[in-house]
Write a protein that binds this DNA or RNA. Structure first.
Lengths: 120, 120
DNA sequence: GCCGTAGTTTGACATCCGGCGTACTACGAG
DNA sequence: CTCGTAGTACGCCGGATGTCAAACTACGGC
C-alpha cells in the first residue's frame, strides 16, 4: 500500500455534475481551436471512447493534458482510466438534456467552418 | 475642419466581414457573462438598435466600451454612430447565414440557464 | 523485478483578459 | 461659444491562459 491519496485501481477524476455545468464555461472551453478539434473528433461517435493519445494534436503532451482537463472540468467530456490509458467521451446525454440542440448546432457550425477554411 | 484622421460625421468602426467571422471568436465573445447578457438583451428584438447606455451593466464605462468592442470585432454585433450615441444591433443575418441555428441554440441555452439560476 | 508506454505534475514564461480611473474627443442643446 | 452627455483611449493591475520542458507516477508485459 504505497498510495494514500491516489486511491486504488482507477484513479478518481473530478467531473462537474450536470447541474454544475455552466454555459459560459462550455463556450470558453470550445473557444480554443485545439479543444474544438478534440470535441469534433469525439463527436464522430458519441458513444465511443478515445484515449488521449489517439488524437494527433499540434501541441506537447503536457499541453494536451491541460486541454483535456479544461474540457472535463467544463463538463464537455467524461474521462475514465482504463489501464494506463485515459479514455475520453462526449457528455452528449448531459449536454443535450441541459441545452437541447446546442451541441448539434455547435458541431454543425464547426463542420461548416472547417469546410470553408479547409477547402477554400 | 479640425479632423484629419477622424473623418467627418459618422466615425468609422471596423467590422469583420461575414467571411472573416470565426466560430472560435464568437464562442470566446459569448463566454463572458457580461457580453452574453448584452447579446441576450439585443436578441429581444433583433432588428432594433440599442445605445450602449441603454444597458444597465455591473461594470464601469470603460469596461463597457471594451465589451462592446469585443462583440463587434468578433462579429456578433454591428455598431453605428447616431449623433452622440452608439447604436448596437445583433448581426443576426450574417450569423444565421454562416452558422444556421447556432444563434438560436445559444440564446435558448442562455435563456434556459438563466431560468434555472434565476428562479432556483 | 524491470522496462516501456501513457499520462501527470510542476514550474517557468509570455500573453491575454477583465477590471478600473483618468483624461480626452465628439456631438447636440442652449 | 459653452456646456453636458456619450463614448474612447490610455495606462495600469492582478489573475487566468496556452505553451513548453523536465521530472515524476501508474499500469501492463515480459
Amino acid at each position: 500500500m504505497t498510495l494514500a491519496a491516489t486511491a486504488a485501481g482507477a484513479r478518481a477524476l473530478p467531473h462537474p455534475t450536470r447541474a454544475e455545468i455552466r454555459l459560459e464555461g462550455l463556450l470558453h472551453a470550445l473557444s480554443d481551436p485545439v479543444r474544438l478539434r478534440i470535441v469534433r473528433e469525439l463527436a464522430v461517435d458519441s458513444d465511443a471512447l478515445f484515449s488521449c493519445s489517439h488524437f494527433d494534436l499540434p501541441v506537447s503532451k503536457s499541453t494536451t493534458t491541460h486541454h483535456f482537463r479544461v474540457l472535463r472540468e467544463s463538463g464537455v467530456i467524461r474521462q475514465t482510466y482504463r489501464g494506463t490509458a485515459k479514455m475520453n467521451g462526449l457528455r452528449r446525454d448531459d449536454l443535450d438534456a441541459l441545452f437541447p440542440g446546442l451541441l448539434d448546432a455547435l458541431l454543425a457550425a464547426a463542420a461548416r467552418q472547417a469546410a470553408v477554411v479547409g477547402s477554400g
